[in-house]
């Protein structure tokens, strides 16, 4: 567990952990390029090979599913890459700490929750950008609130009403946002303990 250090007031160094790749970005050497997840990818390729031997038609259906998901994911990854570049260029750790760091207050919660609600695509597409914000000093509590608020999909609300009714949709949406905020508060307490 991290002790709160003086620099944590700006968010920098807050929650730093080994293996997370988190740092303040100041004075750190650039990491050499390396692909992440090669072993996992190899394992998945083997799974496809094994599943083809077991049931070729289902394996081909899986491959179709893979191609379809990848096709929908690529535009999102391009958008995330652009957003990451803009964040790196225009948002310095000091100003980010003001909006998403220790002193961000209610504004930080509003940004995290609304960003979670409007963000599209699968959660893992957002990991690089979120980690970038984290390295610049964004609070872990706000990031956790962002991730949980993603359960609210504005574009899909009419569909949810059609399947589960208006009452359920409204109650679930409100409780989800409250839970996202609550998780963020708990996470902030854990980090600062």
């Amino acid at each position: 567990m991290n002790k709160k250090k003086p620099e944590a007031a700006t968010g920098a160094g807050n929650g730093a952990e080994k293996g997370s790749g988190r740092d303040t970005g100041q004075g750190s050497k650039q990491q050499p390029f390396r692909f992440k997840g090669l072993k996992l990818l190899g394992f998945v390729v083997l799974l496809y090979g094994g599943s083809y031997l077991w049931d070729a038609s289902r394996a081909l259906k899986s491959l179709e599913g893979f191609a379809h998901v990848l096709g929908t994911l690529i535009p999102i990854l391009i958008v995330v890459t652009f957003l990451t570049a803009l964040i790196n260029l225009f948002i310095d750790p000091k100003s980010l700490a003001r909006h998403l760091g220790a002193e961000s207050g209610i504004k930080g919660w509003m940004i995290a929750l609304s960003a979670g609600v409007v963000s599209h695509g699968p959660m893992y597409a957002w990991y690089p950008m979120i980690q970038g914000l984290r390295e610049k000093g964004a609070r872990d509590g706000l990031l956790i609130a962002f991730f949980y608020a993603r359960a609210v999909k504005v574009a899909l609300l009419p569909m949810m009403v059609a399947y589960f009714g208006l009452t359920f949709t409204v109650v679930l949406t409100v409780l989800t946002l409250l839970a996202a905020w609550g998780q963020g508060v708990v996470m902030d307490r854990i980090v600062h303990r």
């Binding site: 992440k36 599943s51 081909l60 994911l73």
Partner: peptide, 19 residues
């Protein structure tokens, strides 16, 4: 740098949908 990881996750999604 994350491409292999993303491809692996999408691959698992495809397997789930197929099986």
């Amino acid at each position: 740098s994350m491409t292999p990881m993303i491809l692996a996750i999408v691959g698992l999604v495809g397997l789930f949908q197929g099986f």
